[in-house]
Simulated scan of single mutants.
Amino acid sequence: MSNTKPIRIMLTGVGGQGTLTATTLLAKAVLAEGLPVTSGEIHGMAQRGGVVESTVLIGCKSPKIGLGEADVLLGFEPLETMRAMPYLRKDGLVLSSTEFLPPLSVAMGKQENVSIDQVKEVVAQCTGNSFYLPCQSLGLEAGAVQAGNLALLGALTATDAVPVSPQTLAETIKANLPAKIVDVNLKALELGVGALENT
C-alpha cells in the first residue's frame, strides 16, 4: 500500500473527553479500510483536566508529527485546538468543538480562558479550511456528553480529508465499544456527519 498518500492527523483535548478512545477507533477504522496506520499518544495523562494529545498517521514512515506537519487537527476542546495550531500545516483541515471544558490551569485560576472567536482567529491565520461543532451538546443529544468525541470523528468522515467512510466508522464502533454504549455513539456519529453536511 505504498501508494497511500500520507495523512497526519493530530487529536487534542483534555482528560475525560474520550480523546484516546477516538484515536483508537479512528486508527481501527483506517485499518478496516485496508490502509497502513500508526497511532500513539504524544504526551499528557488521561486524567480529568490533563491535556491529551495523540496522533493517527496513515501511510507515514515516521511515527510522529513535527511542527507544521499535521494535515488534520481534531480539537475536542477549543483552547487545546488553539494550543495545537503550530502542528498544523498551512491550509490543513481543522475540526474543533466550540464548547469549552477548561483545563486544570484555567480551572485553578492560573490561566485565562479564551473566547471561541479568539480560537477561530488563530485558526484563520493558518487555514481557511475549518469547521466548528458544539460537540458536548451533540453528545448530550445522542445520550452522553462523552459521545461528543464521536460527533467530531463523524464530522471528519464526512469530509474528503481521510479515507474512512461514516459506515466504516460505524462498524468499528459496533466491533470495539461495549454494547451498552454503542447506540449512543452511533447516534453521535450520525449527528456529527449531519452537523458537517449542514455547515
Results as ranks from 00 to 15, higher is better:
22 A>W: 02
52 V>C: 11
195 A>Q: 14
198 N>D: 12
164 V>Y: 02
110 K>T: 06
177 L>S: 11
183 D>K: 13
71 D>Q: 10
98 T>E: 13
103 P>I: 04
62 S>R: 15
29 A>R: 02
158 A>Q: 06
89 R>N: 03
36 P>E: 15
152 L>S: 07
126 C>K: 08
133 L>V: 09
50 G>W: 08
100 F>D: 10
154 G>F: 06
42 I>N: 00
108 M>P: 01
20 L>W: 05
177 L>P: 11
74 L>D: 07
198 N>A: 15
130 S>Y: 11
72 V>L: 03
68 G>M: 02
27 A>R: 00
69 E>Q: 13
158 A>I: 06
95 L>I: 15
138 L>V: 08
97 S>A: 13
66 G>D: 11
171 E>I: 04
116 I>H: 09
57 L>M: 09
58 I>K: 00
119 V>Y: 07
113 N>E: 15
83 R>V: 03
6 P>N: 07
126 C>E: 12
22 A>H: 02
66 G>N: 10
152 L>E: 04
145 V>G: 07
130 S>I: 02
111 Q>F: 14
183 D>A: 14
45 M>C: 07
101 L>M: 13
196 L>P: 01
13 G>N: 07
61 K>I: 01
24 T>S: 10
122 V>G: 02
28 K>F: 07
21 T>S: 14
101 L>A: 13
172 T>N: 04
177 L>Q: 14
79 L>E: 14
182 V>C: 12
173 I>H: 04
45 M>Y: 08
10 M>V: 06
16 G>F: 14
160 D>G: 10
169 L>N: 00
93 L>I: 02
124 A>I: 03
56 V>R: 01
97 S>P: 09
148 G>I: 03
30 V>Y: 04
10 M>A: 07
112 E>M: 15
145 V>T: 07
171 E>M: 12
151 A>Y: 08
55 T>L: 08
50 G>I: 00
55 T>H: 06
33 E>K: 05
162 V>K: 00
149 N>H: 10
164 V>F: 07
9 I>T: 08
37 V>S: 00
162 V>C: 01
132 Y>A: 15
166 P>T: 04
191 L>A: 08
126 C>G: 12
141 E>P: 10
13 G>D: 02
194 G>R: 15
75 G>L: 04
185 N>M: 14
74 L>K: 04
78 P>V: 01
128 G>F: 05
128 G>Q: 09
106 V>I: 15
75 G>T: 04
119 V>F: 11
109 G>T: 07
84 A>M: 04
154 G>N: 02
135 C>A: 15
